[in-house]
Structure formats: C-alpha cells, structure tokens
C-alpha cells in the first residue's frame, strides 16, 4: 500500500476550494441585498434577503418589454434541456440502429455524411446557420432553438459504439424468435440501452441547458428567453446603473446552475460512466 501523506490532502483541499469558493460566494451573495454588496463586497455568509431576491427574480417582469419572468426563463431552459436531450436520443438511436443493424446500399456513404458533422461545431457556421433559420422562419420558436443543435453526430457515435458491443447472438436469437426490424428495436434494443440512454440524457440535458450563443441569436422575442439569455440581458441593463442589482444577478446565476449541478451530483456514477466510456 502507498502511504497517504497529508500533503496530498492539502493539494486536494486547495483544488476543491479553488473550484467551489466562487460557487459558494455566488450562493451566499444572492441572499444579501445589493447595497450591502456594493459597500462590503462579496459575502461568505448567508443573508436575510433570500426570499425577496429570489421571489423578485422568479416573478418580476423584467426585460425591455416587461414580458419575461425568471419562471418563464426557467421553463424555457427546461424545455431546451429536455427537448434537446430527448430529440438527440431519439434521432441518434434510430440512425445508429440503421447503421449498425442493416445491410443496405450507400450505408458507408451515409455513415461518413453523418460523422462529418463531428468536424465542425456550430460556432464556426453560426452566421449562415442564422440566415438559414431566418429563411425558414424559425427564429423565435422552440423548434428553432432545439432542432438545429441536433445536427451533430455525437449521440449517434455513442449509440453506434454501444450497439456494436451488444452481442451478435441477441439479434440472432430474436430473429429465430420471429422479431422483425421494428420489433427487435422496440422489444430488445431499446430496453437493453436504458442505462446508456440515461447517461446520454444527463450529458445532453446539461449541454442543452447550458447553450448560450444559439439562444442569443435565435430569440429576440423575450418570451423565448432562456436563463442563459437572461444573464446576457441582466448584464446589458447593468451598464450605466448606479448600484447594479448584484444580488439578483447572483440569484439568476444560482438558478441557472442549480438544475444541471443537481443532476450531475445525484447521478454522478452514471454520468461519469456515460462520459468517459462513450466519449473515447
């Protein structure tokens, strides 16, 4: 056995502190009021202002048109995260199924067509993507927020790897048992993939929830704002104000980080497995 030195713990504690302190500070400061923060700087202790601050952030109609509340943004972020994750799983499972379990013409060509999308992230084709969306009239819609982000093969890649690891005999037994392509998919393959689906759901939910640039461009109508978009607009209001609403900004940040962090901490094991085993 290796000896455990206190030094190792020291480094870990420093590392953990480095990572977690900003989060704690944001959380604590969100329970203070803006003037205190303005005068005293950031807080490490909880204040008494949590209820009014969060209440205001969640229900106050903010923005330029006064249309959007924190609740609304929270809901939009949820729709974005869940919609993206579900869409991704459905599309990529089906595509991976076709690629792994069928013999058909142009299969290899299609394989390359799909996997080329891994080459270029959305950011490098952001301008033309925007133009395409406006041509299609999809600006300010949930479809426009979610569907274009699905145009990447990450999920297909994960599921393809997973399907390849399913023993060949599973299909053979099912065929002898009289299962056709649709039955095999629904009865056997989907139930077999449950763990994989859950892991990918978590990763994709976080990815969708955390989207910033795309919602920024796609939504001018504030009723479609997500929390990430809200952060941008709270900063825009900020400029030029005397005492910015620090506490509200922090409260918004806490709301924006809470769901994904909760999901990751609760499903830690599954999440790590999904991430490290499928990404490689």
């Amino acid at each position: 056995m290796q000896r455990i030195k206190p030094f190792d713990h020291l480094i870990l504690i420093l590392g953990a502190l480095f990572l977690i302190t900003p989060v704690v500070m944001a959380l604590m400061s969100s329970t203070q009021n803006a003037i205190d923060i303005h005068n005293n700087g950031l807080y490490f202790t909880p204040g008494s202002n949590a209820v009014p601050t969060y209440g205001k952030v969640l229900t106050h109609r903010g923005g330029f048109t006064g249309d959007v509340t924190g609740m609304r943004m929270l809901m939009n972020s949820m729709i974005m995260g869940i919609g993206f994750a579900v869409g991704k799983i459905v599309l990529s499972m089906m595509a991976a199924y076709a690629l792994v379990y069928f013999r058909f013409r142009f299969a290899t060509l299609l394989f390359w067509m799909i996997f080329t999308t891994l080459l270029l992230p959305l950011e490098v084709r952001i301008m033309p993507s925007y133009q395409v969306m406006s041509t299609l009239g999809l600006l300010n819609s949930y479809t426009g927020l979610i569907v274009p982000l699905l145009a990447s093969a990450t999920g297909t890649f994960f599921f393809r790897q997973f399907f390849r690891s399913v023993p060949d005999e599973m299909l053979e037994a099912a065929r002898i048992d009289g299962a056709g392509p649709f039955k095999f998919f629904i009865d056997i393959l989907v139930p077999l993939s449950r763990t994989m689906m859950a892991a990918i759901f978590i990763i994709m939910f976080i990815y969708g929830w955390n989207q910033y640039l795309w919602p920024l461009l796609m939504t001018t109508d504030e009723s479609f704002y997500t929390l990430m978009r809200g952060i941008k607009s709270i900063l825009q209001v900020w400029i030029g104000s005397q005492i910015p609403d620090y506490n509200e900004a922090f409260a918004l940040a806490v709301l924006a980080m809470l769901p994904p962090v909760t999901v990751v901490v609760i499903f830690q094991r599954m999440f790590i497995k999904g991430l490290t085993e499928s990404d490689k």
Binding site: A95, A98, F102, A107, V132, V147, L150, A151, F185
Partner: peptide, 26 residues
C-alpha cells in the same frame, strides 16, 4: 459491424431519415 444484419433495402432509410433531414438542413 454485425455478423448478421437485416437485409431490407428500405427500412434503414426510415430510421435514418430524421437524422439525415436535420443534418442536411442545419
């Protein structure tokens, strides 16, 4: 990829179509 595969010319397209449509358009 698999020792045994389904040998149907059209079914795989049904499964691939949604992904292909999204990729081509977006």
């Amino acid at each position: 990829v698999k020792r045994v595969q389904f040998d149907r010319p059209l079914t795989p397209w049904v499964f691939l179509l949604p992904q292909l449509a999204v990729i081509v358009i977006f």
